[in-house]
Amino acid sequence: MKLHLRVWRQQSRQSEGSFVTYEADGLTPNMSFLEMLDVVNDRLTKEGQEPIAFEHDCREGICGSCAMAINGEPHGPNAGATTCQVYLRSFRDGQTLTVEPWRAKAFPVIKDLVADRSAFDRIIQSGGFVSVGTGQAPDANAIPIGKGIAEKAFDAAHCIGCGACVAACRNSSAMLFVAAKVSHLGLLPQGQTERKQRVQKMVAAMDAEGFGNCSNQYACEAVCPKEISVEMIARMNRDYAGAVVDQI
């Protein structure tokens, strides 16, 4: 199997990037997209060229590292899958693929396909946690949580912070990410104490990072590899109004 690649190459944050064309040959349909990039990089290294920089870690769809857009789609053409879970059988033999880093002001490109997503870390630091007493681990099931709530909180907790929501959004809004974190903790009893402060601080941090604003077109939901629902954004909007009312 053979693919024509147009890959975004950019030396550093400051430099101008451009597309470079590569021919990927000797592929099999059962290779993952990242394995295909490994093959290309192997060849580039042997030829004395600089390999394509891209992020990857677990390669099993749970770490959220493999951030890149394939033909304008964050994480490629498949629904509910990260780039590492995209296999070459999803493409035609001889197809041309354009591979780009996430595009957003808040995610500046560091090198090639690698964008700086530390804005997400700073949003988490602002309130994406619960303050609990350390020490002995509490008994499992010491706090009873209803099945419905537990499921909903888990749906939100699926977020791996990959940034595809921001990448797909025409406004580069991070609301699905922030909403997933706010809802995940805000649904559970352990998160109630800081619930109002959390939504307030995380939204303030999100705004400060220069993400755009949701215009309810739900591209985020369509590309999310964990299929997190925009229902979470509605929850966050409601929680935020509650926090404002609380101030009065």
Partner: peptide
Amino acid sequence: YAVAGRKS
């Protein structure tokens, strides 16, 4: 993006 995505 250089190419318009369908999914998004």
